[in-house]
Design a protein around this nucleic acid. Structure first.
Length: 639
RNA sequence: GGGUCGUUAGCUCAGUUGGCAGAGCAGCUGACUCUUAAUCAGCGGGCCACAGGUUCGAAUCCUGUACGACCCA
């Protein structure tokens, strides 16, 4: 066998390591065994050194460094708890043994930094004073064939950190610790609620209506039911159904999906713990949320004061509780409780320098609060008693029905949660819902569709109920003192990419990409064929992909007519634009006829110019993608 | 949505006025019995993000595109 060529592009480094695997196999060793026999974690050995010095232990983990020094070698093994040094001597390491998958000293060059290894030996302190495992046996557990990032600087490129978090975390144990804390935080949320008699439930992520909040949903299609559905924007309405069923304290640690912007504090997919408590009002939740934060601070993070956006926030003290009217009075000197007309309220706003006209006294007070009082609430503070005009889903207060049984959490001037006594009067709720829909039109950020099934639940009756929904990531950002949600979410959402290096290594063929938001160049089939014959197009890839597309704009009822337009998207000829070739418009009187026409049009139409493509570009494959179909949005189902 | 910036070897980064593409780590070969960013000697490794343009000549200047970061709303 020829020695590996001395070179080091990634592909060549990888090949050198694959060659080592080959040599291991020839020696009868398994580069990917399944059995490991760790007895101690690294941190145990370091922390309990006095106790276990001289004992024989087995550690296992990733080999993070390797320093060969003639008949003596040193390295570090890293596991979930930390790193411990391996101290290896030629004269005391047992020789290679295939049955034990063991490597002797002369074969240690088959190991690489990054491999997963196991070492058995005595716990000692080296002459230089480092606590180490003096290895008698070294076993390879997993051969790594990709090099780790630079050992001193690690990964600096933010994009690679986010895309390959596992590499960043491998290099930075403090990052590993951070994600461990987030995991422990969720565990403690469960323990906290469990201790208070709450039961955890799984609620559906795929929902037929996107109720329980106002946000743009992700849409999906359930094939088995042939039905469009939505990913949960909230789990609230299902928790209330559980209350209707007779459970009095329920919660879910749920996944929430909102098809909206991504920024420092927002991510399309996130988690919340959402509770629902029967036979309690919003004051119960004011206590609950305060205790929850205090519990997490002390039990997970071991302290009560945290630096949030430059402010020292102490969760150990009782939180300030202030009515919104009092908060505004304090900040502006105006008591909106004494104001009776919108005109007067707007006059007061103008005196404060707030010029946006407000429709009601309640709106005016909320506006003044948001602009003048909220930024000063360093807190943590609980602001209660919102105007009913802006609280359609909350119950009005019995003692003053102008204000709702509702509170918001403020930490360092930021709103961190919204909670209320749930409106359980089905008639009132249905009215409010319809009003909101009429006001907002079709914007899902302003209202959500009517969920008659849920109204029916309320008609059967649910007890007085109240819930909280603190966000997992938001809480983690506060407790970990981080301002970027990407530092909390281990796998942030990013556009998929394939690096040129991986393309080469794995032999991934460059597929004609069809990103839909590129501007389109549209041609009729005759012009297109002519341009192909005139050598206007040059293929950019080995495959030219033809993707037939059906835009269905009428389907059956109410007029018993079927209409669709056919088009063909051609991938692999244009780089910065989509290339679209138009097709026929189909009209049919029955579903069977329509399906027949669709089939014929997508095949025959494509073949018309496909023949030209095949003739002209003989070196390329002309492939057909499955037909995609788009239905025009259904109009006015209701009313 | 707006602005600013980035993209050079697997990783971290240089690259002057537009003139042969550079280093460290990692890799390969060898030496070395207490190293820990080991050291020493030697050897390799590049679609300078992509596509155009200007130019005798472009990593460098111009335009566009992609991906990303930061700031603002």
């Amino acid at each position: 066998m020829s020695s590996p060529s001395p070179s080091s592009s990634l592909a060549q480094v990888r090949q050198a390591r694959l060659d080592k695997i080959q040599r291991l196999r020839e020696m009868g060793l398994n580069p990917y065994p399944s059995r490991a026999s760790r007895t101690h974690f690294c941190a145990d050995i370091l922390e309990r050194f006095e106790e276990i010095e001289g004992q024989k232990v087995t550690v296992a983990g990733r080999l993070m460094s390797w320093r060969k020094h003639g008949a003596l070698s040193f390295g570090h093994v890293q596991d979930q708890t930390g790193r411990v040094q391996l101290y290896v001597r030629r004269d005391t390491l047992l020789p290679t043994d295939a049955a034990e998958n063991r490597l002797g000293y002369e074969h240690l060059n088959l190991l690489d930094v990054g491999d997963i290894v196991e070492a058995e030996g005595e716990v000692v302190r080296t002459e230089r004073g480092e606590i180490s495992v003096k290895a008698e046996r070294i076993r390879l557990l997993t051969k790594s064939i990709r090099p780790l990032p630079e050992k001193w600087h690690g990964i600096q490129d933010r994009e690679i950190i986010l895309r390959k978090r596992y590499l960043d975390v491998t290099h930075n144990p403090e990052q590993l610790k951070r994600y461990e804390l987030i995991s422990r935080m969720v565990f403690e949320v469960r323990r906290f609620l469990d201790a208070r008699g709450f039961l955890e439930f799984q609620t559906p992520v795929i929902q037929p209506q996107y109720g329980g909040g106002t946000a743009r949903p992700f849409t999906t299609h359930v094939n088995a039911l042939d039905c469009d559905m939505y990913l949960a924007i909230s789990h609230e309405l299902y928790l209330k159904r559980l209350i209707a069923a007779g459970f009095d304290r329920v919660y879910t640690v749920g996944r929430y999906f909102r098809n909206e912007g991504i920024d420092r504090t927002h991510h399309p997919e996130f988690s919340m713990v959402e509770t629902m408590t029967a036979y309690a009002d919003y004051t119960f939740n004011m206590d609950l949320i305060e205790e929850l934060f205090r519990h997490l601070a002390t039990h997970v993070f071991g302290r009560t004061t945290f630096n949030v956006a430059g402010h020292a926030i102490d969760f150990g003290q009782p939180w300030r509780r202030v009515s919104m009217a009092d908060a505004v009075l304090e900040a502006t000197g105006v008591d909106f409780r004494n104001i009776t007309s919108p005109d007067e309220a707007n006059a007061r706003l103008r005196e404060m320098g707030l010029t946006e006209e407000q429709p009601t006294v309640g709106h005016a007070m909320a506006y003044a609060f948001e602009e003048k009082a909220a930024p000063g609430l360093i807190g943590p503070a609980l602001v209660y008693g919102h105007p009913v005009e802006i609280s359609p889903l909350a119950k009005p207060m019995a003692e003053d029905p102008r204000f709702a049984e509702r509170f918001e959490i403020f930490i360092a001037g930021m709103e961190c949660g919204d909670n209320w006594s749930e409106q359980n009067d089905p008639v009132t709720l249905l009215e409010r819902w319809k009003q909101a829909r009429d006001l907002a039109g079709a914007d899902p950020e302003e209202h959500h569709p009517l969920d008659y099934d849920f109204i029916e639940v309320l008609e059967h009756g649910i007890p007085p109920t109240t819930g909280i929904g603190p966000g997992i990531e938001r809480m983690a950002m506060i407790f970990l003192e981080l301002e970027n949600i990407d530092d909390i979410i281990f796998f942030p959402l990013m556009k998929p990419v394939v690096s040129p290096v991986n393309r080469a290594i794995y032999g991934i063929e460059e597929r004609p990409g069809l990103p839909s938001r590129l501007p389109a160049v549209t041609l009729d089939p005759e012009s297109f064929s002519q341009l192909v014959r005139d050598d206007v197009f040059r293929p950019l890839a080995k495959t030219i992909l033809v993707r037939p597309h059906l835009q269905v704009w009428a389907q059956g009822a109410p007029r018993k007519a079927w209409h669709a337009t056919v088009s063909y998207e051609i991938g692999g000829l244009l780089d910065h634009n989509r290339l679209v070739v138009t097709g026929p418009t189909l009209t049919a009187q029955s579903e069977e006829e329509f399906e027949r026409l669709c089939e014929a049009a997508t095949e025959n139409g494509a073949n018309g110019f496909a023949e030209t493509l095949k003739e002209k570009f003989r070196g390329c494959r002309v492939e057909f993608a499955p037909v995609s179909r788009e239905h025009a949005p259904r109009v006015a189902q209701e009313g």
